[in-house]
Design a protein around this nucleic acid. Structure first.
Lengths: 181, 181, 181, 181
DNA sequence: TATGAATGAGGCTTCATTCAT
DNA sequence: AATGAATGAAGCCTCATTCAT
């Protein structure tokens, strides 16, 4: 699908990706605040000055990284949500995808909050279709993502089983905690 | 209630509190990772070296701060939960206290996760009393705190009304999102 | 022999000695240049400020220490030298005492050069008595002390036996290195 | 003789030498322990951070300096020793070279002990050739170097004449201090 | 465009010294 | 006298950024 790029262009793209990959890893290990540009370069085969040919600051990298992650999260998280016929299908698809992302080794330390806008939109649409009670879509998206992220962290740490957790979380948000009267 | 302390002791306590207060503010503004010890001292009337009479590192301050916050959170968050007669009372008390903490100006940037253990214990007891469906108390506590924290952040940013949010969040976790059949 | 001192005086003397002993140890471990006043105080049961009741600076301590060491070295190093009837007796007494000092554990890191003046005077007297060839007493004292110090360091490090080294060093300075013609 | 280096390489070598020269001077003036890296940089036209492009610590500089000095000392101190036909020639060559080094202004504060290994080897060879009495070469080397260093210091301070001192020191170690019977 | 050394600002920490108790 | 906390200077080191090659 990708056009064949001239050698120069290819190297440029590769170097950019070197930096982004290194940044993702460094941010995951130390947190964004504590990470330094030098840390990123060090995790790269490039020289110090080369960084500035691609980005102007740590914040610049972060934004590029966020865009990249949002693009990667979108298809995965949205999959199955748009066409869900019931709230249960919607929630189950969401938690299943979310926990898969959090426990997948290759995407360590993904912050699900990057998918906020997409989820909010999907929820609004689902509310409009009558699948959900008419709640504030923003608050609901925040609650779902925060809960999924936190439970996902627990799963990634080995506390719990993803499949069972998907079921429990779906039930929790589907029917709530109240025992039937 | 407090014993009258000799002057020197009083000043020591005061200085320690200067640092803790400054640290809370600095961590809230810049994040823990990006904050520097110098930032903390600068937000204090103290001299640079004085920091090390009280703490050995930024991490040391963080731990003291966390202990302080846990101690402050405990009575507020627990209030009304232990003796709640219904799940609704429990959830309502929880979200009400949580949102009050997050929107209260003087306690900016409190991370509710510090109250995890208390909440988990309360939930276990509530499940045992039959107030809640028999869910995994750890996962439920994680979900409630994460959701409350995230929604609380939105409230603190002016997006939404605490009272209404308390009602909605209570309902969300009480009955779930599914419309009645 | 010591007069009984009033309690105050006794404590003062004791504190002064605390500092001197700590300083000797610290200087031996880190060298004079690298040692700090705080290092000295830390090796003491005293508080930081107390140092300045006894000494004004690191240099001040060093001088007191040097005087103390010179006073301690004098009788040991001079012993047997003044009344030596031959050069061999003189040298043997000197090296024997010097190596004993360097290898004695309780007087670690003594710098024999503190005994320079005494040795020079003894040598001058010995030259005048015809025990030694008429060499420059200063240079000879320097050579003897430097050699004794350096060989003593080797002995203290376990390289060689003090008794044998005394014999060899005595012979070396007595007859030189030239094989008999 | 030296290959012509590209400009960048030349500057790097020059900067390294700036630091080494400054360090030698600073160590000589203040002693190794008391010297600071900042002192060294200040004696240089370089910026503070540049130090760490060349060395990792004060100790690192010291080692480089020692290697440099050993390399510089070797040919000078060894000159004339290896092929000496008599003990007198050997000692005379040694002291002459040593005093020249100590009193030469451009090589202030050289510590002759850096030449220990070379001298010990030369002495062993000389003993094997029968030039010297069969003494412990290590102890003898230590004694000679220590004496030469100390007397050299006296000469550098203006106390004595190098030529005369060479003669006296040679005699001292050649025949010892004992007057002929 | 890539390199990597130079720069000096600034963060971390320890120090000598003072002084209220 | 003895104490030990406060002070701010100063040492150590790393950083972001520039720029000659």
């Amino acid at each position: 699908m990708d056009a064949v790029l001239p050698r120069r262009q290819r190297i440029k793209q590769q170097n950019r990706q070197f930096i982004l990959d290194a940044a993702r890893q460094v941010f995951a290990e130390q947190g964004y605040g504590a990470a330094t540009i030098r840390d990123i370069i060090r995790a790269t085969p490039l020289a110090a000055g080369t960084f500035y040919n691609y980005f102007t600051s740590k914040e610049d990298v972060r934004q590029a990284l966020e865009a990249e992650m949002a693009a990667a999260l979108r298809p995965v998280l949205s999959e199955g949500r748009a066409e869900a016929a019931t709230a249960e299908e919607f929630l189950s698809a969401f938690f299943s995808a979310a926990f898969a992302l959090k426990t997948g080794t290759e995407t360590a330390a993904i912050d699900l909050r990057a998918g906020f806008e997409d989820l909010r939109a999907d929820l609004e649409s689902a509310v409009a279709r009558g699948l959900f009670l008419p709640l504030d879509a923003g608050a609901l998206a925040a609650a779902l993502l925060a809960a999924a992220d936190e439970i996902g962290n627990r799963l990634a740490a080995g506390r719990g089983d993803p499949v069972q957790a998907t079921g429990e979380a779906t039930l929790l948000f589907l029917r709530g905690v109240q025992p039937p009267a």
